[in-house]
Structures are given as structure tokens and as C-alpha cells.
């Protein structure tokens, strides 16, 4: 189809470990093709040149944890035609959303000599709690192939088509034996979205930790009832649910229910 102007891509960082944006640089083989297909206009971790907005595609990494970031995300949204969150932090609040169940002031006093200099929020929240998001890319970290697919889709004006079904689908396609059924291990796979790349943890004989957040139609209450009947206690289940996606609604609500 007809050639069009190269789309401008920007990458923004909020509270995060940088791992997701690094996934983009990790696309060694495809990086040159990517640079041909789009213009990387703003990506501090990769390029010192910073082109001004507006941008066609904005990738946002990290969650909102400070008043400053809460304001900055509004500016970012205004500069981006399409805004895509990349990773668990931006999509659900990330591991740092564990603070949502803790005493924020106590943390500050414990960690910092002069907590008065710290200006942070009591919660870590998803980007979509603050602005409209066009697409959410899951994972801790994101899967680089999925990231490329999403960027490529937006660059071509298409809707990304990534799986939203359970990790189990990938396990079965790989021929991986279900650890929950064959070993009685409490695995989050049945309630977690596929995409990590062939059900990574179960393929290595480990339970799924839910890095990709809830699948499209999760039923964590039924799953935890089952695990409880197999003598997995509630605190263990709560720890499993309150991980990289503790603040994703389906996991958050079930964790809260179990911890009563």
C-alpha cells in the first residue's frame, strides 16, 4: 500500500526499573528495520537527540508514584496521538504497588534520613488511572516480540492483535505438563494472560507468577478456592497474587478478599 510519512515514536519513563524500554534496545536483529520503519524521536535511554512533540506513538514505562509524575503524564498524553503503556508498572502499578497495602509514611521514615525531602504519593497506580490509554502491553518485563508487534502495528495504522487468553493455552501448545495438576503447585497460569513467550515459568517446571496480569476473563476466586482445598494457605495465595501485578483489578480484588 502507499508509502506514508514515517511515524514518530517517543519513549517516556515513570517509576520503573527501565527493563521494559531496554527490551526495545534488546531487539538487536530488528532494531535497524525498526529505525527504518519509524522515527525514534524521543528515547533518552537510546538517543541524545530529542525531537519535540507531538508524537504519533508514545510508549510509557512505569507507574505514577509522585505528584510530579501525576502532572507530567497529562503533558505526555497531550503530546502523543497514540499512547501505549509498556509493562506491568505502567499497566497496573507494578511491584511498587505493594506500597498500596503498606504505611507509606512509615516506609519514608524508615528508609530516608530526612523524609521531608521526599515528595511521593502513598500509592503506585497505573497510567490508565490518570489518562486515556490506547493500548496496554503487559509483562514484567514486556516480551520484545510483542513490543515490536505493537510498534509495528501502530506504525502501519493497525490495531495490535496480541493474545489475551490464559497462559495455559501456551503451555498446552508447547506440550508442557501442567504443574498445578501433576504436582499440586499453586500456579497462576489459568488466570494470567499469555504472552511471556511459550509459558516461560511452567516450561521450566515452575509455577506462573502472573507477570502478564489477569487474562481476558479471569476467575481467581475459583482458582484460589481450589488451591485452598489442596492446603495452600491464604497468605501464600495473597503473596502469589500480590506480585508484579498486585494492583491489576482481578488480582487486587482477590488478594483483598483472601486477606479479608
Amino acid at each position: 500500500m502507499a508509502a506514508v510519512r514515517k511515524k514518530k515514536l517517543a519513549v517516556f519513563k515513570f517509576a520503573s526499573c527501565d527493563g521494559c524500554q531496554l527490551s526495545l534496545l534488546d531487539c538487536e536483529d530488528e532494531l535497524l528495520q525498526l529505525a527504518e520503519a519509524i522515527e525514534i524521536a524521543y528515547f533518552l535511554e537510546a538517543r541524545s537527540q530529542q525531537l519535540p512533540g507531538p508524537y504519533d506513538i508514545g510508549l510509557v514505562e512505569g507507574s505514577i508514584t509522585t505528584p510530579h509524575d501525576r502532572a507530567r503524564i497529562q503533558e505526555v498524553r497531550q503530546k502523543c496521538h497514540r499512547l501505549v503503556t509498556i509493562g506491568a508498572c505502567a499497566t497496573s502499578g507494578g511491584i511498587q504497588a505493594l506500597r498500596n497495602w503498606a504505611d507509606h509514611d512509615e516506609f519514608l521514615n524508615y528508609v530516608y534520613a530526612k523524609p521531608g525531602f521526599i515528595d511521593s504519593l502513598a500509592t503506585s497506580t497505573a497510567i490508565s488511572d490518570h489518562v486515556r490509554v490506547d493500548y496496554e502491553l503487559r509483562g514484567c518485563p514486556v516480551n520484545k516480540h510483542q513490543l515490536l508487534q505493537v510498534v509495528s502495528a501502530f506504525a502501519r495504522g493497525l490495531k495490535p492483535q496480541l493474545p489475551t487468553y490464559s497462559v495455559c493455552v501456551d503451555c498446552k501448545r508447547e506440550g508442557t505438563v501442567c504443574v498445578a495438576v501433576s504436582q499440586g503447585v499453586a500456579c497462576l497460569g489459568p488466570v494470567t494472560q499469555a504472552g511471556c513467550g511459550g509459558a516461560l515459568c511452567p516450561t521450566h517446571h515452575r509455577e506462573c507468577f502472573g507477570c502478564f496480569g489477569p487474562q481476558e476473563m479471569p476467575n481467581p476466586a475459583s482458582l484460589s478456592a481450589r488451591y485452598k482445598s489442596q492446603e495452600v494457605d491464604s497468605p501464600r495465595l495473597v503473596r502469589l497474587l500480590r506480585n508484579f501485578n498486585s494492583n491489576a483489578p482481578a488480582f487486587r480484588d482477590e488478594g483483598n478478599r483472601l486477606s479479608g
Partner: peptide, 13 residues
Amino acid sequence: AERCLACANCTLV
């Protein structure tokens, strides 16, 4: 439906 996880395991095995 209250119990079903919609995980698709039944169909895949």
C-alpha cells in the same frame, strides 16, 4: 461458569 476458569485447558487436552 462460577467454577470454570475459562483457561481453555479442557479443549487443548
